[in-house]
């Protein structure tokens, strides 16, 4: 696949928190309809990479391109407006707003008022519409956050640790959602759940101490034992 077709191309990316460098010359790409996973230990720089792509961190050097448009220096809200949505790790929703109001916020921003796909993926949200998001369980919050992010059918979804602390049944549900979503949206998933990664990812980047240590592509290479080496 040529680089020009890629939804996202990250080249020689360096990111630092003050004096402390977090990413070193990271090269990374995501093609259309691909599910790309980032694995690595805590502190490897996975979340930093996502935040940088989403516009919440400014890189020290390097480039982040999406369909020939540089994302470096663009405000986070504008990047979201370009169809690159970020689902953070913290599972913090707008707790004082109802599920419906949370989705309305997503709808208004993306000008997509059709919630059919959201409620098909997460039927439970239908019965929780009038509940304040602060009273949702961790899994329900994750459903809401992903549901809100997929409104407007983004071209790229950045998801940080989506299954952390969730029940296995919800993890299974998310796996199917990610698979189905990838038919129209490319995904970058930061995840430590290797069975999930191996089940859905088309490509895996292994990070360690801010560096890409390996790129695994194809179902033959993407196996838990190959990924485990980097955890």
């Amino acid at each position: 696949m040529s680089g020009g077709d890629d939804i996202l191309t990250v080249s020689a990316l360096n990111v630092a928190y003050g004096e402390s460098k977090a990413l070193f010359d990271v090269n990374f790409r995501v093609g259309p309809n691909e599910i790309v996973a980032c694995v690595g230990r805590n502190g490897a720089g996975k979340s930093t990479l996502l935040k940088c792509i989403a516009g919440f961190l400014k890189p020290a050097s390097g480039s982040i391109m999406s369909n020939a448009t540089s994302l470096v220096g663009i405000a986070a809200y504008a990047i979201a407006g370009m169809g690159i949505k970020y689902v953070p790790q913290d599972k913090k929703v707008f707790s004082d707003l109802t599920v419906r109001e949370n989705l309305e916020l997503g709808s208004y921003a993306s000008k997509d008022y059709d919630w059919t796909q959201v409620t098909e993926y997460f039927p439970k949200l239908k019965v929780l519409m009038d509940r304040k998001a602060g009273f949702l369980s961790g899994g329900e919050r994750q459903m809401l956050m992903i549901g809100r992010a997929i409104l407007g059918r983004p071209k790229l979804l950045l998801v940080d640790e989506p299954t952390e602390g969730l029940a296995p049944s919800i993890v299974g549900q998310l796996r199917e959602v990610f698979r189905d979503l990838s038919k129209g949206t490319a995904l970058v998933i930061v995840e430590q759940n290797l069975p999930l990664v191996c089940a859905i990812a088309n490509r895996v980047y292994a990070l360690n101490e801010g560096r890409i240590m390996a790129e695994l592509a194809g179902h033959e290479s993407i196996k838990p034992e190959n990924c485990e080496r980097y955890l």
């Binding site: 809200y77 979201a80 707008f94 707003l97 997503g106 921003a109």
Partner: peptide
């Protein structure tokens, strides 16, 4: 209105509004 919800969202966590594409 959505704007009222945005204001409250801005108060609760401005970053979360940016994820959705809003300019705080």
């Amino acid at each position: 209105t959505i704007y009222g919800a945005c204001c409250l969202g801005s108060k609760i966590n401005e970053d979360k509004l940016k994820f959705l594409g809003y300019n705080n």
